[in-house]
Nucleic acid binder design. Structure first.
Length: 652
RNA sequence: GCCAGUGUAGCUCAGCCGGCAGAGCGAAUCCUUCGUAAGGAUUAGGUCGAGGGUUCAAAUCCCUCCACUGGCUCCA
């Protein structure tokens, strides 16, 4: 609110802030964000909504400091939406307090998709949304000025006497300094750091989305509060777009498509989080398995197989029991305790250990499509994304310390291969030694250097996540983006100095002394379940030819062409092909093939039968008549073997 | 585990202020033999998630449980 000109304070020496273009701006020592904006230009000064200091969103009244990287936030900035939504959260809280008595306020920040506000002692359900939205609209209509006030902690304490949660926050803020800020709109006020838009009229359109429970401060020990989620945009059009995107994500939901395409089911009788794969789903999984199997065999992996159940002695040895027992399925058999494996690595370490090794034998590379079992919290289970049983395309390498770089590089080649096959863009992060860790300084240093060397050599732009590594070793994590821009955790490469220690793994070196190998855990997909889920949503069920459960469908125009249709089917028997022999019209058959997401339809009628040709139609509704069977077959073979992302026989 | 919502035919859903269990799609059968995204008719298909309670009567109201959805929390 203070549109003051820059203070001229000749007594204090000026300070400098860094602007986004890299230039420095000199301002008086007591300058605020707004002052800086006015210094840059009066237009910008007037448009200033908030600022960012070293990346942190702050009110325009916030003081700047020497050397700060300053960005001015106007209604053109990306951050503007955050500010607007924060104000929308206030409007929600104001509306709630108008409609419900004795509600206690907690916090109400903006989020990536909108905002929420947490309340205690609020009994609300979605049938109240209409009334609350109407109230919010009224508040926006009223166009209350949103006023910022600075108060001392004492004053704030008085005003917040009825708000226990706010008081709790205040006590923490009190430790930091003597001033806190309040924002007021109409009769409503809140302890809040801001920033906010100038008035409620600027909030635009608000839509409430859902009600959820949330623990105060995210701690299970604390009371559960009522959280109302909503979103806000500058105008109706943006909101519509948002709702459409949400709808699109829903359309792509792998549970919906998995059901439609008969890919898998998770049934009450068989238990939660335990997916059953139906033939079409397993067909896709088998193609995925074959793909990594080729990659693995090409890069020198040997396949091994380990049981699903082990004596828990193995997990005591590996250390999983101590840290992981709560998430394991454990049961007694006679006097012994057994458990379902939550990971494949101890089994692989046990295989390695059953042998003596020379330095010449390394690296040893084991691969297994290993099914593992983890007893996740029930509320966490969701479709294929979080399950109790899943299969990892697991690989474990036992290498000499000097081999790390080469091996990691070859793993990254394979990951590249996989992700590019599915048209997935990715980001890479290197996570380094955390505070608590096992392994010597030398081995950590050497390993991290090698990982960095690989990343540098490959010219990969990566995030350094310092201290984020596992306690047993550093790792490289991949995250990729799907067709509608959502980000997923992808493959990882993890070095492990702990397991070799625990299993006392050794090899005999050139010096005839025994040495400790380094273990590398890697997966190309991660888990088949997660990757499958992601692919279903990525492709919206429209799988590329090589993955499609039904690759071709022959549609006879009338029953008179059924015989020819079957002869055509036989000609394509190396593919997954069906004949639609239902008694219905061609239109219906085309529609059905389309709904079933079959990549190619082969249409045969009298014309084709007489000429001995076929008509080819793809899922994009393109069609070519009079195609020779061999021509199409040759194309299909190439399309399948090259794993092309979409049917392209009819592409120009 | 916690908060809120949902659970009815293979699928999508209606019925829910108590009174005979419904529709569309799909399936089967028949008519139709069809040239590029729904031709017509008939039939079958249900422990209304499970258990208990209230009532003359429960899909509907109440209680308990289960599962699912969205969050929270947790996550090597």
């Amino acid at each position: 609110m203070s549109e003051s000109e820059p203070h001229s304070n000749a007594e204090q020496s000026p300070i400098a802030v860094v602007l986004p273009d890299g230039s420095e701006l000199e301002v008086p020592a007591d300058a605020t964000v707004a002052d800086c904006a006015y210094e840059i230009g009066p237009g910008l000064g007037r448009d200033t909504i908030a600022g960012k200091l070293d990346g942190e969103l702050v009110a325009k009244e916030a003081p700047v400091y020497e050397g700060a990287r300053l960005e001015i936030v106007t209604d053109q900035s990306e951050e503007y939406l955050d500010v607007l939504r924060h104000s929308a959260a206030h409007c929600l809280a104001q509306a709630v307090e108008r409609h419900f008595d004795d509600v206690k306020l907690a916090i109400g920040p903006p989020t990536e998709e909108g905002f929420y506000y947490d309340f205690d002692d609020l009994d609300v359900d979605e049938s109240d949304f209409d009334a609350l939205e109407a109230e919010i609209d009224a508040i926006i209509e009223e166009d209350y000025a949103i006023e910022r006030e600075e108060l001392t902690v004492e004053e704030a304490r008085e005003r917040l006497a009825d708000e226990p949660y706010k008081l709790e926050l205040l006590e923490e803020l009190a430790a930091d300094g003597e001033q806190v800020t309040f924002y007021t709109q109409g009769e409503w006020e809140d302890l809040c750091a801001g920033p906010h838009v100038e008035s409620t009229g600027e909030v635009g359109v608000v839509e409430l989305l859902e009600i959820a429970g949330a623990y105060w401060r995210g701690d299970e020990e604390n009371p559960m509060q009522t959280r109302i989620y909503g979103t806000a945009f500058e105008d109706e059009g943006d909101l519509e777009q948002f709702l459409e995107r949400r709808e699109e994500a829903k359309e792509r939901d792998h549970r919906k498509i998995g059901n439609e395409m008969d890919l898998f089911s998770i049934q009450d009788v068989t238990g939660p989080g335990l997916p059953l794969y139906h033939p079409p789903g397993k067909t896709i999984l088998r193609e995925l398995e074959a793909f990594v199997e080729d990659l693995n065999l090409d890069t020198g992996y040997d396949y091994v197989e380990t049981p699903h159940v082990f004596k828990t002695e193995l997990w005591h040895r590996s250390g999983h029991y101590q840290n992981y027992a709560d998430d394991m399925f454990i049961f007694d058999v006679g006097d012994d305790e057994f458990g379902l494996k939550p990971m494949n690595c101890p089994g692989h370490a046990a295989i390695f250990q059953d042998h003596s090794w020379s330095y010449r034998d390394l690296p040893v590379r084991y691969a297994e499509n290993g099914k593992v079992y983890r007893k996740e919290q029930r509320g966490e289970l969701s479709g294929l994304s979080r399950v109790w049983s899943f299969t990892i395309d697991d690989g474990h390498l036992f290498v000499r310390p000097d081999q790390i770089e080469r091996e990691v590089e070859s793993i990254m080649d394979a990951i590249d291969d996989v992700l590019s096959t599915f048209d997935l863009e990715y980001e890479v992060a290197l996570a380094t030694r955390p505070e608590k860790s096992v392994g010597s300084d030398e081995i950590w240093e050497r390993a991290e250097e090698q990982l960095e060397a690989v990343l540098e050599k490959r010219n990969i732009d990566y995030d350094l996540e310092s201290g984020d590594g596992a306690f047993y070793g550093p790792k490289i994590d991949y995250a990729f983006k799907d067709a509608i821009g959502r980000s997923w955790d992808g493959p990882t490469v993890q070095l492990d100095f702990n397991m070799p220690e625990r299993f006392d793994l050794e090899y005999v070196g050139e010096d005839n002394e025994s040495h400790r190998p380094v273990m590398i855990h890697r997966a190309l997909y991660g888990s088949y379940e997660r990757f499958f889920m992601m692919l279903i949503e990525h492709y919206e069920g429209n799988f590329p030819l090589w993955l499609a459960p039904e690759q071709l469908r022959v549609l006879p125009i009338s029953d008179a062409n059924l015989g020819y249709a079957h002869r055509v089917k036989n000609a394509f028997e190396e593919f997954r092909v069906e004949v639609d022999q239902r008694d219905s019209t061609l239109e219906r058959k085309i529609r059905a093939a389309h709904d079933d997401r079959v990549p190619y339809q082969i249409i045969v009628g009298d014309n084709e039968e007489e000429a001995g040709t076929i008509s080819v139609r793809d899922r994009f509704e393109d069609q070519e008549y009079d195609v020779e069977v061999d021509t199409f077959k040759a194309h299909l073979e190439r399309e399948r073997d090259e794993k092309r992302p979409a049917p392209d026989f009819l592409a120009d």
